[in-house]
């Protein structure tokens, strides 16, 4: 078993004035130089600077950064800035999901039904189809490095929703979480299985190691789940996000397992995805039937939030997929800095 190296990575390299001010405030403890709401309004909501600033603030709720006082997690000045960044990000997503700020789908059933249809052939927009057929080891390595920000936190922000659910929704959520966290066996925690996949690909398995390498599109997908997880008001969206991940995961994982097998990536790399083919076929059913079904029976008013969670996840996944496929087709690496590429045997 590959041990997860102790957390708390170094603070990231800033990518603009917002992230620079946040990293400085986190490391120094002085919040006087934090940006104004007007400065946030002038910043691209999906860009590197805002997404890294938000990511750095959220990281304080997970493992934090080396050298940063853990009490910064609840610093009111940082929380105030975080709220401004979140408003900018959510405002953009509200605008871009669907049209005119209204969701595409009128109900959760419609939104999920759209995800439950498998394309007959590769339509050129799917990362897993691309990797299945054309993926080379260096692209699988790119993909795993960038997705490590997500998978090494796998199911963590989703645990924050548990106290905000009850009855069937809570029981269903915990049943899935139990599986994600290894069903009582530390070596089967999905984040650990992902670290083993990374080791097979010759990547550094240290938590947060690829933060500086990850483009804004990858940070945004992680920020979305942190945002939904941390706010009770977004409990419906968190559940929608989770359903979206679980519903799309099983068939995607089948294709990614084939990519790992075809390229000889290694047994752990293959196992991570074959495990998810089977596990997520179960999780999808539990999330749809018990978690969403239970939540909406309990709180029918949050249905539009569940739909928003599903659609916002799809929107950010599409942005990331577009970036990945564009750069790979141009034979470039998607990482901002290249990973330590060991010689291929």
């Amino acid at each position: 078993m590959t041990p997860l190296t102790p957390p708390a990575p170094a603070p990231p390299l800033p990518r603009g004035p917002l992230s620079s001010a946040v990293v400085t405030a986190l490391t120094s403890g002085h919040t006087a130089g934090l940006p104004s709401p007007e400065a946030v309004t002038r910043t691209d909501p999906y860009g590197d600077d805002l997404q890294l600033a938000l990511y750095s603030l959220y990281e304080q709720h997970y493992w934090g950064f080396a050298g940063v006082d853990p009490r910064r997690e609840w610093d009111p000045c940082l929380l105030e800035l975080r709220a401004t960044l979140e408003d900018r990000f959510m405002g953009a997503l509200r605008r871009d999901v669907g049209g005119d700020g209204r969701p595409v789908h009128g109900s959760v059933r419609e939104a999920l039904d759209a995800l439950l249809v498998e394309p007959v052939r590769d339509d050129g927009t799917s990362v897993s189809h691309y990797l299945q057929r054309h993926g080379e080891l260096r692209q699988l390595r790119d993909y795993a490095a960038l997705r490590s920000l997500y998978h090494l936190k796998e199911a963590d922000p989703h645990a924050w929703v548990i106290p905000r659910l009850r009855g069937r929704a809570k029981a269903g959520m915990v049943a899935v979480a139990y599986d994600e966290f290894g069903a009582g066996r530390a070596e089967d925690i999905h984040a650990v299985l992902f670290a083993e996949l990374m080791a097979d690909l010759g990547l550094n398995t240290t938590y947060g190691h690829y933060l500086d390498a990850a483009p804004a599109e990858a940070l945004a997908t992680v920020n979305l789940m942190s945002l939904f997880g941390l706010h009770r008001v977004w409990r419906g969206a968190l559940v929608g996000h989770f359903a979206s991940v679980e519903v799309t995961s099983s068939p995607d994982s089948r294709r990614l397992a084939q990519a790992m097998r075809r390229t000889g990536a290694g047994p752990a790399a293959e196992r991570f995805y074959t495990e998810h083919v089977e596990a997520d076929a179960v999780h999808e059913q539990l999330v749809r039937r018990e978690v969403i079904g239970g939540l909406l029976a309990d709180e029918p008013d949050v249905e539009s939030d569940v739909v928003f969670g599903i659609e916002a996840t799809g929107e950010l996944d599409r942005r990331l997929a577009t970036l990945l496929l564009t750069t790979w087709r141009q034979d470039r690496s998607v990482l901002r800095t290249s990973p330590e590429a060991p010689p291929l045997s």
């Binding site: 799309t248 089977e278 179960v282």
Partner: peptide, 19 residues
């Protein structure tokens, strides 16, 4: 075990994300 192969298949998926 189920691997979601029962799902309806269509020429153009309306939506789809990356895992």
């Amino acid at each position: 075990w189920c691997d979601t192969s029962h799902r309806r298949r269509a020429c153009h998926a309306e939506e789809g994300g990356s895992p």
